Simulated scan of single mutants.
Amino acid sequence: MKPEECYLLGSVVKPHGLKGFVVAFMDVDDLDDYRKLKTVYLEMPAAPGKLTAYAVEKVQPQTEDRALLKLKGIDRIEEAEPLRNGQLYCPLADLPELDEDQFYFHDVIGYTVIDEKLGELGTVEAFYELPQQDVMGMRYKGQEVLIPVVDELVSHADEETRQLHVTLPEGLLDVYMTPASRERDEPDEVAEP
Rank of each mutant, 00 (worst) to 15 (best):
P3V: 07
E4I: 12
E5C: 09
Y7E: 15
L8G: 07
L9A: 12
G10A: 10
V13D: 12
K14R: 15
P15T: 05
H16C: 12
H16G: 11
K19C: 10
G20L: 10
G20I: 08
F21E: 15
F25C: 06
D27Q: 15
D27R: 13
V28Y: 11
V28T: 15
D29T: 13
K36H: 13
K36N: 14
T39N: 14
Y41M: 05
A46G: 04
P48R: 05
P48L: 07
A53D: 07
A55N: 15
A55Y: 08
Q60T: 10
Q62L: 14
T63A: 12
T63K: 06
L69N: 05
K70V: 02
I74G: 04
I77C: 13
E78N: 08
A80H: 02
A80W: 01
P82S: 04
L83Y: 02
N85P: 01
L88G: 01
L88N: 01
Y89K: 00
L92T: 10
D94M: 11
L98H: 03
L98S: 09
F103E: 07
G110F: 09
T112C: 06
I114V: 15
I114D: 03
E116L: 04
G122H: 03
T123V: 13
V124K: 03
V124Y: 01
A126S: 14
E129T: 11
P131M: 07
G137P: 03
R139Y: 04
K141I: 07
G142H: 04
G142C: 06
V145E: 06
L146K: 12
I147C: 05
P148W: 03
V149L: 14
L153H: 13
V154A: 02
V154W: 01
S155F: 07
S155K: 13
H156E: 11
A157N: 06
D158F: 06
E159I: 07
E159T: 14
E159V: 13
R162L: 06
V166K: 00
T167I: 03
L168D: 03
E170G: 03
E170W: 03
G171F: 04
L173C: 02
D174N: 12
D174C: 01
T178M: 08
A180N: 08
S181H: 11
R182P: 00
P193K: 10
